[in-house]
Write a protein that binds this DNA or RNA. Sequence first.
DNA 1: GTGTTATTTCGAGAATTCTCGAAATGTCTT
DNA 2: AAGACATTTCGAGAATTCTCGAAATAACAC
Lengths: 114, 114
Amino acid sequence: MNATQAIAALSALAQEHRLAAFRLLVEAGRDGLPAGQIAERLAIPNSSLSFHLTQLSEAGLVQQRRDGRSLVYSANFAAMNGLTAFLTENCCGGESCAGDAAIGPVTGEEETAA
Amino acid sequence: MNATQAIAALSALAQEHRLAAFRLLVEAGRDGLPAGQIAERLAIPNSSLSFHLTQLSEAGLVQQRRDGRSLVYSANFAAMNGLTAFLTENCCGGESCAGDAAIGPVTGEEETAA
DNA sequence: GTGTTATTTCGAGAATTCTCGAAATGTCTT
DNA sequence: AAGACATTTCGAGAATTCTCGAAATAACAC
């Protein structure tokens, strides 16, 4: 994951409804949840939710599959893992970024951006 | 860290210049970096940078101290750690959210929000 | 105190994001 | 095929965020 992808993922999660939706999908695990149920649980209009699911999807954080007339969304755990890895590596100095923080400089310039 | 705080932190990092600034500060470690140097390295006007630094600061991700006429900013590693912890706990199902993902439901309702 | 350097605050315009009803699309049932 | 259901796309208005020059604030040097 490069900085551009990380920003996309961070932006996607940095919104009340999208974070809530994503947490619901994490909770739901592999099975996922149909869009309608997410909208209902979040108490927002379908069209609004659809907008947010598109954002999450474009950021690569969720995936879609059809089941009858329902579109079932599920969390992409690998992408989420990639995000936390990026944050730990680039924004914590490599370690769990815990307390003491002399923390080795992360001189990296590993990505050519997009 | 609750969802509201997490959204603030995510929003703060979900922006090109702010993510770059924060990475610079992580690299700089404890010592931090004066505002002017950050603006220079990022090649953006001081006033723009100041805006972004305020955002990072309000999200609790950086702190400020004065050194002569310079304001020196430094990363708040504890806050960053809190964010990754939140993401791991709430958006990964508790585990490193790695691959297999039956992942125990995170039924939590641990926070009353702000 | 005057001048210089470092940085922030103000203000306004540009750009982006969010919201949600109405219409369109795709699927199932009969 | 017609009707119902699940969801998305479209479009436009509302809200928020980003940008940056100019003016204000703070600290130092003389």
